[in-house]
Design a binder for these strands. Structure first.
Lengths: 153, 153
DNA sequence: GTCTATGCAAAGTATTTGCAACGTT
DNA sequence: AACGTTGCAAATACTTTGCATAGAC
């Protein structure tokens, strides 16, 4: 999602809910959009403080919740205990491949799996709303893998 | 997994690691095995206390970690913040369908999806070790769905 | 007797909430 | 002026850890 769309979605949501525009929300939004996907609150807070030193952690939590409501961000929880956020992708969702050694997160999307999930749900008397699919493994190329910092470090 | 196998695995692990057999571990193991899958620590603690009133929560946490190490239990985290445990299934793993209204958790296993995951991983230069796949949706049958207590309630 | 396990309380994480001061409209 | 927002601190929820005592071997 580009900065333009995100800002429009936020404006619309703020107007709809009778909320207010604030400097902090602009900072959190810009920081969030310029971070590479899958940012943790902690990382986000640190980055925001480079621009707005006085910003509090509760503000970042509250802003991210607002962005989720506004349709700008998606909340993700992997296995490391921290909630991470990524920008909504208007062209559709994707799932994740995660290396347990170096922590790199790769996005994927597979129509066969998507299709099959709906069939499985239907066969069990469910209507699918969303899903979570994470494949854990290790990078086959040790040279690039070993150099990246681990997710759990 | 039956009680017999679980006990054997635990005995083996205890012997291997030079640990000790204790009454509490027996209680937690029996309680865990007789609970239907996906028990939370909290539920487990309450159930254990029916049999052994003095048992502490730390003991249950420690016992479950031990069972995971022994290959008896698997740790699962769904979206509700609590860690849940289920017995290891020796015939292979399965994934989950979860109703967001009533909270019922149904297990599924689909060879097409399994196969496809490995291909996706390979295509991205990964070797799969494990994965997590949860499909969220709603029960199509409202009569059974509405009667069950919600996961998030 | 040695060394692990237990129960309690305290500490640690991640996140949420109460509240007075502040900023937006 | 009215009301949502902020930053702080306190509260909450879940899990882990320190420590003295109890129990297994």
């Amino acid at each position: 999602m580009n900065s333009r769309t995100a800002q429009d979605l936020l404006d619309a949501h703020i107007h709809r809910e009778r909320l207010k525009h604030t400097g902090q929300r602009v900072v959190v939004l810009q920081t969030f959009l310029s971070a590479e996907g899958h940012v943790s609150i902690d990382q986000l807070l640190q980055d925001c403080r480079k621009v707005a030193p006085g910003i509090g952690h509760a503000t970042v939590y509250r802003a991210m919740k607002l962005f989720v409501d506004a349709g700008i961000a998606i909340e993700r929880r992997f296995q490391d205990g921290q909630t991470r956020f990524e920008p909504v992708n208007p062209e559709g969702h994707h799932d994740h491949l995660i290396c347990t050694v170096c922590g790199v997160i790769v996005e994927f999307e597979d129509p066969v799996i998507e299709e099959r999930q709906h069939e499985v749900a239907r066969a069990n008397g469910f209507r699918t709303t969303h899903h979570r699919h994470e494949i854990y493994g290790t990078c086959l190329d040790p040279s690039t893998c070993a150099r990246r910092p681990s997710l759990t470090a």
